[in-house]
Design a protein around this nucleic acid. Structure first.
Lengths: 233, 233
DNA sequence: CGCCATAATCTACACTGTAGACTACAGCGC
DNA sequence: GCGCTGTAGTCTACAGTGTAGATTATGGCG
């Protein structure tokens, strides 16, 4: 009945498989659905077996965060267009939130020091310095960009969480929107505040807002570069 | 022995006192230290008594988040300087994170729709429209500002969490910094990545970076206002 | 006094993370 | 073949969690 080769009743567990399973659960059902018992069940194994490969639940969460940040694509340094590279970096961060809305809290909890994120940041820093920025300016620009992309991604994902699986913004006429939003707000919220919520968070093209904000940051960076060049010559 | 007046063996519990106590615990020891039993103890009361005044633990967390956003100061609309008002708004959001570093996850979890935040946003929107912005532009600017301030505040607070009570950035020479940061990173992290971490997150004047990023966003807003005015006349 | 609403307590249950003892088994020298 | 040893997986048990439900004080009011 069983496979003849190597008598692999099961592949032995390992850290990578544990983390992958954990991310799967989180993506599908949210962080609060992840328990060690559930994780064991998902892997077809006693819950305690997981502890052989991972230090504990916190370590699992840390590992998943690392896994997520690893999905950030490398910068492609060949073209030498630092602005395009930065824009791609920012978009990638935002996309990460979109790809794993339920895991957003994890990416935030370990926001500053995940090694893969540092690696990509390093690439960006190098590109900026190659373009003539000094290291302080480059770091400041990158920091601004990371902060903004993170905050923006988070805000969007928080909106998605409200409707959980449905489309965002909730489709329909302006009147429909009003009704839909009223559900998310405590009863008795003044109508003018419902309007504010809609204006802020149910705008049609959040892509455009994101891009234009990035433009803003990049144009500021460009300005700084020119000033720096003018001063040094 | 006891106070004679009104025989108040204790003031009866109420929602506000529950939330205040919860925030106290969170500020002092972090979110994970908050349990219903701990909360009851803090209030000198059976854990179950809390449930009379609040719907459950999630409701407590929601309430605390609301409490936090209530600390956002009102805009002072009299001076009519929309840019100054926006800058104050952004700084206030950032200050909120600084004032309650342990509560940051809570403010994020309920990022978009806390009523008090909508109230202040409403004031800002009004001010912008009074200055000549149309509602879409005003909303976009505000959204960018909120996202950025949130992301920036979060990143800073995440750094504070690393040292938990000590000063940030950790003081000392560049070599000291290197050693200090190495502790926060997994062993074996390449030195160039430690450098990146330091450049990004241990910069001396994060106030200045914040302000200059806000300047960037505001100057973009100003530009849009002028264009809009030029087009409409 | 009795009645009753409200606040606070007590008990109990299902569930969590995980320490520690235990079993199953592969690879080894003899 | 034997026994040893190290490793992967299992089992049991414990302290701690959120909270449903029953129970007990405690006040106000007729």
């Amino acid at each position: 009945m069983r496979e003849p080769d190597a008598t692999v009743a099961r592949e032995p567990l390992n850290r990578a498989r544990v983390l992958k399973a954990a991310l799967g659960i989180i993506d599908a059902e949210g962080v609060e659905a992840l328990s060690m018992r559930r994780l064991g069940a998902e892997l077809g194994v006693d819950p305690m077996a997981v502890y052989r490969h991972v230090d504990g639940k916190d370590a699992v969460l840390d590992g998943v965060a690392e896994l997520l940040w690893e999905e950030l694509p490398d910068a492609c340094p060949e073209d030498g267009d630092w602005a395009a590279s930065l824009r791609a970096f920012a978009s990638a961060i935002r996309s990460l939130f979109h790809a794993h809305p339920h895991a957003a809290p994890l990416m935030l909890q370990r926001l500053v020091l995940p090694v893969p994120q540092l690696e990509k940041s390093h690439q960006q820093l190098e590109a900026l310095q190659a373009a003539g920025f000094d290291r302080e300016d480059a770091a400041e620009i990158l920091r601004t960009l990371i902060s903004f992309s993170t905050g923006y991604g988070l805000a969007e994902v928080t909106c998605y969480a409200l409707v959980d699986g449905e489309a965002w913004p909730p489709p329909g006429s302006e009147r429909d929107l009003l009704i839909a939003f009223a559900q998310f707000l405590p009863p008795g919220t003044p109508a003018r505040l419902v309007d504010v919520a809609i204006a802020l968070w149910a705008m049609a093209d959040s892509d455009a807002t994101f891009e234009s904000s990035i433009d803003l940051i990049l144009s500021g960076a460009r300005l700084r570069l020119e000033r720096r060049r003018g001063a040094s010559e």
